[in-house]
Amino acid sequence: MKLNERAINTVVLLGLLALPLYALVVDEPFTITLVTRAVILALAAVGLNIVLGIGGLVSFGHALFFGIGGYAMGILAYHAQTYTTLNLGFFSTGGTKLMPVIWLVAMTVSAIVAYVIGKLTLRTSGVYFIMITLAFAQMFYYFTISWAQYGGEDGLSIYIRNDFPGLNTLVPIQFFAICFVILCSVLFLYARLQASPFGLALNATRQSATRVEAVGLDPMKLKLLAFVISGAVTGLAGALFADLNRFVSPTMFSWQLSGELIVLIIIGGVGRLMGPVIGACVFVALEHFLGGLTSFWHIYLGVILLCIVLFARGGILGLLTGKEGAHV
């Protein structure tokens, strides 16, 4: 089977838009929430795809940024709903319920953390990199568990979804619209990034860091920048995810989530624009339908994943387009 990747991408995006609209017409708000969940997971995985797909860096700790985004939202909204002051020493605020502000904070904090962690971890490569990113995410996981001020292990509940000027975010379709527009913007950014000189250099770094160095570019700087952008995008997704559930807990930092983000990309196709989106849709659909049939649906997920790794290396997009790699 050989289909045009661009055509598939268009169909997937249109389908992602059409399904909630259909659900709106037949009045099934749960379906809209389900699709919103897929869109947000896709956004997080698109973030990871920048380092994993283009840069070839297997970060096994991207839940770290997802969690930071979640806690950025949780902490700001918590202070706003309890009318308490968040005092950071140099700066104090009463928290906020405004989404754009929360997103900005989530992305900035994620980017800063990504910068620091990138500085430390990008010195290593291969297995060391995989395990160190994992370990950093675990560090934050255990930290939030013992962080009693913000709920510790139980997490934080936010009673009312945060506001977006001009919209009622509690209406499922309006919240979906926000997430969908953000996903499309980030996909656009990803496509531009991949084709930009920076993206090409990053791609080259994945293939041969030595040659990139030989033409006068600094692979470390390229990887660090990619890591920072990637962290910020995944952080944004975390803030949206927390808003979707109106709940944050240390599980947003869990290593299973880091693994699942990689799984989403692999199911769809590594390094491909829509790979993470397709992966997220398939994942959420499996979770919903298999999860409804049996509580042991992870077994089937495991088997499917094993088959993809062993037999279908390009993921679903690879199967459909007949091209195994994204970069051919």
């Binding site: 994993l52 297997v58 096994f60 291969g126 297995v127 995989i130 693994g259 990689i262 799984v263 692999i266 590594v270 042991f296 649906w297 992870h298 077994i299 997920l301 495991g302 088997v303 994943l305 094993l306 790794v309 062993l310 290396r313």
Partner: peptide, 21 residues
């Protein structure tokens, strides 16, 4: 390494759920 991580991650899912079963 990526394939190894994924395949063994898949094995964890199978083992954990299988044991739960």
């Amino acid at each position: 390494h990526l394939d190894q991580v994924l395949a063994t991650f898949a094995l964890i899912l199978i083992f954990s759920e299988g044991t739960r079963w």
